[in-house]
């Protein structure tokens, strides 16, 4: 019960506050909230496999980056799609982003998921780095310097050049992502991946091909992250390989753990605290990584179960 109230409160605050700030002349806060919500989607999708499936992916930034490039590269080639009078490049770009990342998740997942534990962590990291170096090596798309997206995705009824509408899309997407994850983890499929997290050998001897279930979860998570990446590309209008640097993957993981892995709201809380902290600390000192890193260590050492765990301790309710 307490948890439901918290969820509603957080989501209501995200729905109301940023637009109000924007309309009262504080555009900066809407920007911050847009980034927060988009990274929140990425964290929610990472949590599907990390928190519920026990697959510690250290390469999810690659999906975000690939999703962003799936918007940037067609835009770079001036590929615009029209349907009647509508310019609808977004209706091509976003599905491309989802399809490309799903395919990448499938191909790498086939190999990554044959391994366990620390191998999995390192291999996901290595594959993400592979994509990073691939993009760096393609000079056509700016290599190291990145790529400016001249034109945002065009969608019917929506104008992503309007910050408020872009935020609206990101916010609704976050709700959908959370709803999807909540639905999946409660379903029969979700029970299987959670069971495989708890005891893979047991699940296999019960007759579940846990590899196939894990792979499916991995692909779903990757595709959702790719979608978040497409939004991020539209938001920043500048994309670069730096988006998929492994430290970005680490940050996504931190959001999940900070908020509380294996909870639906946790990653959103984690993303919120992360973005706010980053903003506050970096406005105080250019060396903000120092207190930030110390905090990260402290959270890992002392806060079990993340903010959601802390909340459960304070206000009761099941973890």
């Amino acid at each position: 019960m307490a948890r439901k109230i918290l969820t509603v409160a957080v989501l209501a605050a995200l729905a109301v506050l940023p637009p109000v700030f924007y309309l009262t002349g504080n555009a900066f806060y809407l920007d911050l909230a847009t980034r927060l919500v988009i990274l929140g989607i990425a964290a929610v999708s990472l949590n599907l496999i990390l928190g519920f499936g026990g697959m510690i992916s250290f390469g999810h930034a690659a999906f975000v980056g690939l999703g962003a490039y799936a918007v940037g590269i067609p835009a770079y080639h001036w590929l615009y799609y029209t349907a009647g009078d509508w310019a609808v490049s977004g209706l091509a770009q976003i599905p491309i982003a989802v399809a490309v990342t799903a395919l990448f998740a499938l191909l790498t997942g086939l190999i990554c998921l044959r391994t366990r534990g620390v191998y999995f962590i390192m291999i996901t990291m290595a594959f993400a780095q592979m994509v990073y170096y691939l993009i760096v090596s393609i000079e056509e798309y700016g290599g190291d310097d990145g790529l400016v997206i001249d034109t945002r995705s065009q969608l019917p009824f929506l104008d992503l050049d309007d910050p408020l509408q872009l935020y609206g899309l990101a916010y609704v997407s976050l709700l959908v992502a959370m709803g999807l994850v909540a639905m999946i983890v409660k379903s029969r499929f979700g029970m299987v991946i959670q069971g495989a997290k708890g005891n893979d050998e047991r699940m296999r001897t019960l007759g579940f091909n846990t590899y196939a279930y894990r792979l499916t979860a991995y692909v779903i998570s990757g595709a959702m992250c790719g979608y978040a990446g497409a939004l991020l590309g539209n938001f920043t209008t500048f994309i670069s390989p730096e988006m998929m640097d492994w430290t970005r993957s680490g940050e996504l993981m931190f959001m999940v753990i900070l908020g509380g892995a294996g909870t639906v709201l946790g990653p959103v809380l984690g993303a919120t605290v992360f973005i706010v902290l980053e903003e506050v600390l970096s406005s105080i000192t250019i060396h903000w990584h120092l207190p930030f890193g110390l905090m990260l260590i402290a959270v890992v050492l002392f806060v079990r179960g993340g903010l959601m765990g802390l909340f459960a301790v304070l206000f009761g309710g099941r973890k």
Binding site: M183, S187, F189, M191, V192, G198, R202
Partner: peptide, 27 residues
Amino acid sequence: SLIMDMSVEDNVALAVQARAGTSFRFI
């Protein structure tokens, strides 16, 4: 070798589920 972080009934229900056709059911 049980799934310790699940409830008792969930553990047994997973065994039933294993016999009840595919578990690629998401909804």
